[in-house]
Design a protein around this nucleic acid. Structure first.
Lengths: 181, 181
DNA sequence: CCCAGAAAAGTTAGTGACTAACATTGTGGC
DNA sequence: GCCACAATGTTAGTCACTAACTTTTCTGGG
């Protein structure tokens, strides 16, 4: 692990801790840099925005693969819903708790409303690509992908907040609704 | 029209002009205040954020009314899609051009990705209320409403950018996709 | 007409995210 | 060890937005 990766990790770690302790808004980027033992400027060289410190997961390209395996001629929304169901079917408990910790922070920060959607642009783009291979027009693909990802984001946030539902059932319910049931 | 409304309007007007001239990001709030003949502080007393200068339309409560008129037991996504179709069926050309002008600015500003969604929270809330009257659970309602509004937003942006499609057809296509066709 | 009192706007000083330009220090390949 | 370059530091700034406080402008009752 080179120097770059080490400070990168240190920054992400420090950010998570501080956000959990004092909340997102109440944590200054200067603090994060300090705890990571680094200057503020360096922080912004590693993460282009404060948001990125929280939301820098590479989201599953698994979904895109699943899209390509769906039967042809299927309605777009259904394709997406089923693909997500497939891709997320096996998320270990470990990842789930980590995800929950992050989403809790998002759920509590007013400033971050919409940050998830903005950040999921990469996921949407991947989905559009996969749909294009199936002959779906770009605009329709973008509409459907954005809608599904937005809906999914809401479901995940509610799951993270509630503490009463498993990730699986939360996803199932959301995908059912999005699929038109 | 009292003093408050006059400066309010002057600010919104100045913002639109400057955004159209130089783009959203390249326009400082200080400039807007100056053109409106007012201090920067006053600007923020009228509009809580820079975004609000662009996105301060009261979105149709018509949609919520339409939701309540749909047949019971209908799938949620279908209810929403049909309600929107109903509510937006008669938008005059005048409103359409104004809308287009605003959306063009949004489409060109990277910073504003997600701003529309964040701002449409009120619309989503209204839809959730209307759906609650029909016995739809809160989480499901939120998932569906967020998804539909997000998808709709994408369609509107593409329409504003393209210049080749009418608002009606853009909406039709999007709603069809969202409805599961 | 005048003069409280409130509504609207101004002033000043600051915070916090982010950027630009340039100087400095570590690190890995030869 | 040396050298190129990657990684970090420093400084000084811009811009959105806030807080505390003062001043101007309107408005209605005597």
């Amino acid at each position: 692990m080179g120097r770059w990766e080490r400070t990168h990790e240190a920054l992400a770690q420090a950010a998570l801790e501080l956000f959990a302790e004092h909340g997102y808004d109440a944590t200054a980027t200067a603090q994060i840099a300090e705890r990571a033992g680094v200057s503020e400027m360096t922080l912004f060289r590693h993460f282009s925005t404060k948001e990125a410190l929280l939301l820098e997961d590479p989201y599953n390209p698994l979904i895109a693969a699943a899209v390509r395996s769906r039967p042809p001629g299927e309605p777009v929304m259904r394709t997406l819903v089923e693909s997500i169901r497939q891709a997320w079917s096996r998320i270990d408990t470990e990842d789930a708790t980590a995800l929950r910790a992050r989403l809790r922070i998002v759920a509590e920060a007013t400033t971050l409303r919409g940050a998830v959607e903005r950040n999921s642009g990469a996921t949407v783009a991947a989905l559009i690509d996969a749909l294009a291979d199936r002959g779906v027009a770009a605009t329709e693909a973008r509409v459907a992908a954005t809608a599904v990802i937005a809906g999914l984001g809401v479901a995940l946030l509610e799951w993270a907040r509630s503490d009463r539902i498993t990730l699986d059932t939360a996803l199932d319910q959301a995908l059912m609704v999005l699929g038109g049931a």
